[in-house]
Design a protein around this nucleic acid. Structure first.
Length: 919
RNA sequence: GCCGGUGUGGCGGAAUUGGUAGACGCACGGGACUUAAAAUCCCGAGUCCUUCAAAAGACGUAUCGGUUCGAGUCCGAUCACCGGUACCA
């Protein structure tokens, strides 16, 4: 294979600057109170004598899970965007915090360990080293002194510590915030310490519950709702079933309201806010109490958003798991066979004749046996069974049958509904299948058929509600229910508490011990609690965590045993952005002083928090919800100063393969960044990823496009370096490649670059470029910023003499995007200009543009006739409307177009356009 | 189904508050340099029609309609694609 001639020696340049940046800690971020280093370029720029730091800019990437596959081209997309902004803000004079770390607990390392017996710590370490090397090859300006790793005991010590804070807190509904458990007051009827303990444990933000959970047999662990997608595990796509298990839960539902409302404080995309809003799923409505017409008169409470349709409730449905089902079984069964009272389903599972009780049991076990996946797939056909019992509709005293059906979910609302088949599509389908009555109670405004009408209309057949509009009817009926103590206004959320324990080896152990079937916290001085060393990490079929096999670790003196579940992967990522702020603090997870500085406001952001967070959409309802939740607890407890962590957030769009398909090994369309960097260099790679299109957009990879920006960098190189010295270099390199660094250092500046004052055309060119690039970077429009830089180069390349001041400004503009080539060129240019050179371009101040250089003397008016362009007329910028009009009307072209038609109107927009309306 | 987003040349994409549609780049065609190629440099180019050529013209931002002197941009309807969600009462 013939090697193509390089556009410029990017490999030599890039490794040279990586070493310089690393050795000088060029991108160190300065904490308040930290010792200053006067010779550091940051302090050469800023006043070393002052006590206050410059304004901060905290720009964060979603840290990666270091998988065995290494970096793919999707990772550097967001990382490049943030790096550009980090460098831009350094030039603007900010103290920039731009950190990187590893979200390293997780399933793949553990699965690899199960297969090979290699400790996940080893795998993780290897993968991290690969990732770090790959990321460093891209020249990102991270402060590597703040690198965090969630699996490092010095890190997860604080994850466990935060868990203890959560464990030792409760949510006070009166203050609407978390408080230490010590502020909890107990109802007077609780006498014994044991009763109080149970009460207290049920109030904690971290609590243990026996509940049906998402159990994934293939992974051997339970999963949170957020980790289950279409009935399958998010990781691996294995089937998930519901299984009752004793698990740790975090009370995220207590924060549902604040998590929803505080979205208003954030500068996030509309669609992302929408996703969180939908996931939290707030709905306003009422709880209504129905009384079962049985011996014991059980209360059946339902939740509804349409209390106004109460008169149309013709039956009730309980979820198969509903607790009342056993109790409401009537003492005597109705006459006839189950078939006659429709106690069968179409599924063939219950076949009459059999006793009603058996029918119910059969249906319940049928429903229980369905996996989540099956429930989703079978959702089209309704199944159910009549209980034989009836309830009284509180609004009209009518007896309505109580059914059991799995289209009612035990986990939402009260697990029971009033069915209004006329105005609910699911109830309608069910009623039609089982021949239940349908009563119209809402008249559509357009007078159409009310059956299946779901919107707002006018109440009919509804007693005292009849004639009222839906919103008013809702209010009236709920007021009535409250007055008669048969119901009340309430709000329901789809969000459920966060299932927080996992049956895995490779996660943070809970700092919890058990005795006599109750739990307590271990003391903080015992943190970090390390997991035991174990010969094998296999999950078990039963759901018993692997840690349980480590008997020496589990069994403690005095009859105590350790909690053997571990925390989910999300735990570490819930607070890593706080650790970056004070990454090496041994005494606390993050000092107040540092937190106040880095999470405060800046001239850029008037709302406190991280100035910009960039990452993929895949975390829209997982990490981003969990982290906000933890942050709010820490806020309530006084450990952080802001109610929200991520003030501004941008999702980068997916990069597709060259075939416009999602990159995947099976399609064979995966692009490896290492290959691209080897061929074209990191600067070209960075530039291309930003040039492809808007950051948020999904876009396909095109290697030819990399060549395009690579050629651009070659033009930049030749713009600055003398042709003769390049030829010399080429000739020498054919003899001895090892001399490359030395020869590159000796390259001479292009003699066309001179220390002379720029002419007005050159001033205009550079100032309009400064304006455009600055404006584009502020608005994250990297693609158009690059295009503006290309326009400049296309222009400057034609200049016979290139003023050095203009060329330096250009390098400053290109620097955030292509840092290596600009460092190299600045190193040659700055001494040539007899300016002081501090060893890097990174802290040179960002160029300012001056409008006075942009002013035009003439403007070429496009002249339209009836909106169609007919002529262009160049006029002085000062031309008055009258002058413009005269000039336009004397144009031969315009005269010809108008011909004998009459002019209705002439619109003149100064310095923009002229349009003549004729008929 | 519901919610959100996006539709512009052969391709990725530009286009301030409604004001010259197609910047910049890719691919393509032509030329210069070269023994030749690569690299580089210069020129061309939305589509159609007419023409030896040029000029001019017509049509063009998913489709249909509307508002306006003027619409890629605003409004209404439709279609397609992408993402989220799914018996949430």
């Amino acid at each position: 294979m013939a090697t193509i001639k390089k556009q410029y020696p990017f490999d030599v340049i890039e490794s040279k600057w990586h070493h310089i940046w690393e050795e000088n800690k060029t991108f160190h971020a300065w904490n308040p109170g930290e010792k200053k280093i006067p010779h550091h370029p940051f302090w050469k720029r800023h006043n070393v004598k002052t006590d206050t730091l410059p304004p901060k800019y905290y720009i964060l990437d979603m840290f990666p899970y270091p998988s065995g596959a290494g970096l793919h081209v999707g990772h550097p997309e967001g990382y490049t965007a943030t790096d550009i902004l980090a460098r831009y803000h350094r030039a603007k004079g900010f103290n920039v915090l731009h950190p990187m770390g590893w979200d390293a607990f997780g399933l793949p390392a553990e699965q690899y360990a199960v297969k090979t017996g290699q400790h996940p710590r080893i795998t993780t370490e290897t993968n991290i080293n690969t990732f770090r090397k790959q990321i460093k090859a891209l020249g990102f300006s991270y402060d590597w002194d703040r690198e965090v790793n969630t699996t490092d005991p010095q890190y997860f010590k604080w994850t466990q510590w935060i868990f203890l804070k959560i464990y030792n807190s409760w949510f006070n509904p009166e203050t609407n915030r978390a408080e230490p458990i010590s502020t909890l007051t107990y109802p007077p009827e609780l006498q014994s310490e044991e009763q109080k303990r149970i009460y207290r444990d049920n109030k904690r933000l971290a609590y243990v519950a026996e509940a049906p959970v998402n159990w994934c047999p293939a992974l051997g662990t339970v999963l949170s709702n957020e980790e289950v997608i279409d009935g399958k595990s998010e990781v691996g796509g294995f089937p998930v079933i519901r299984k009752p298990m004793r698990q740790w839960m975090l009370r995220i539902t207590a924060y549902a309201d604040r998590l929803l409302k505080d979205l208003d404080l954030l500068e996030w995309s509309h669609s992302l806010k929408e996703m969180q809003t939908n996931w939290i799923g707030r709905s306003e409505g009422a709880e209504v109490t129905f009384i079962a017409d049985t011996e014991r008169k059980e209360k059946i409470i339902v939740f509804t958003t349409r209390a106004d349709t109460l008169f149309g409730a013709t039956y009730m449905v309980l979820a198969p798991e509903h607790k009342l089902i056993d109790q409401i079984t009537p003492s005597t069964w109705p006459e006839g066979t189950p078939d006659e009272w429709k106690g069968s389903t179409d599924s063939g599972i219950i076949t009459p004749p059999q006793t009603p009780k058996e029918a119910i049991e059969a249906y319940r076990s049928y429903a229980a046996g369905k996996s989540d996946l099956e429930r989703t797939e079978l959702s089209k056909t309704k199944t159910g069974v009549f209980t034989g019992a009836y309830a009284i509709n509180p609004v009209n005293g009518k007896r309505i049958p109580i059914w059991i059906a799995d289209y009612v979910l035990s986990t939402y609302g009260t697990g029971a509904i009033m069915a209004v088949p006329a105005h609910d599509s699911r109830d309608l389908e069910f009623a039609q299948k089982f021949n239940l009555p349908i009563i119209h109670v809402v008249q559509p405004p357009d007078g159409s058929d009310p059956t299946g009408f779901l919107g707002d209309g006018i109440s009919i057949n509804s007693g005292f509600l009849s004639g009222k509009k839906t919103p008013e009817a809702k209010k009236t009926i709920i007021d009535w229910l409250q007055a008669t103590q048969q119901g009340h206004r309430t709000i329901n959320y789809k969000l459920r508490d966060w299932l927080f324990s996992r049956q895995r080896y490779w996660g943070e152990p809970f700092p919890i011990i058990w005795k006599n079937n109750h739990h307590e916290a271990i003391s903080e001085d015992q943190l970090p609690l390390l997991p035991p060393e174990m010969p094998d990490y296999k999950p078990t079929q039963s759901g018993e965590p692997p840690l349980a096999r480590a008997a020496d670790w589990v069994n403690l003196p005095n009859g105590y045993v350790r909690e053997t579940n571990t925390m989910p992967q999300w735990a570490g990522s819930c607070w890593y952005y706080l650790r970056y702020i004070d990454a090496n603090n041994k005494d606390t997870f993050c000092s107040n002083k540092a937190e106040n500085y880095w999470m405060g406001t800046t001239p850029k952001a008037t709302v406190p928090g991280i100035d910009l967070y960039v990452g993929g959409t895949e975390h829209a309802v997982l990490h981003l919800l969990y982290a906000r939740f933890w942050h709010k607890i820490l806020f309530d407890l006084g450990f952080v100063s802001t109610p929200e962590p991520f003030h501004k957030l941008v999702n980068q769009g997916l990069i597709l393969g060259e075939d416009s398909q999602k990159m995947s090994k099976s399609r064979g369309n995966v692009v490896n960044p290492d290959d691209v960097i080897r061929e074209y260099g990191a600067d070209a790679f960075r530039l291309y990823e930003m040039f492809m299109g808007p950051l948020e957009m999904v876009k396909p990879w095109n290697t030819k496009g990399v060549e395009g920006v690579y050629r651009f960098l070659g033009r930049v190189w030749r713009l600055f370096i003398s042709k003769e010295s390049l030829t010399e270099l080429d000739q020498n390199l054919t003899l001895d490649l090892s001399k490359a660094p030395e020869l590159v250092a000796q390259l001479k500046l292009n003699p066309a670059i001179q220390n002379i004052s720029p002419n007005p055309v050159q001033l205009k060119t550079i100032h309009s470029t400064i304006k455009k690039v600055t404006d584009d970077l502020e608005n994250l429009r990297f693609n158009t910023a690059i295009s503006a830089l290309m326009v400049f180069v296309n222009d400057a390349i034609t200049w016979e003499i290139k003023p050095a001041v203009v060329m330096l400004d250009f390098l400053k503009l290109l620097q955030p995007l292509a840092p290596h080539i600009t460092e190299e060129l600045a190193e040659k240019l700055i001494p040539f200009m007899n300016l002081e050179y501090n060893g890097t371009i990174s802290y040179l101040s960002w160029p300012q543009y001056d409008e006075k250089y942009l002013a035009e003397e003439t403007f070429e008016y496009p002249v339209q006739v009836n909106g169609k362009l007919r002529d262009k007329i160049k006029l002085p910028i000062s031309a008055t409307q009258e002058e413009v009009k005269t000039a336009v009307l004397s144009s031969e072209r315009i005269k010809a177009t108008i011909a004998d038609k009459t002019i209705k109107k002439i619109i003149i927009v100064p310095r923009r356009i002229v349009n003549i309306a004729i008929n």
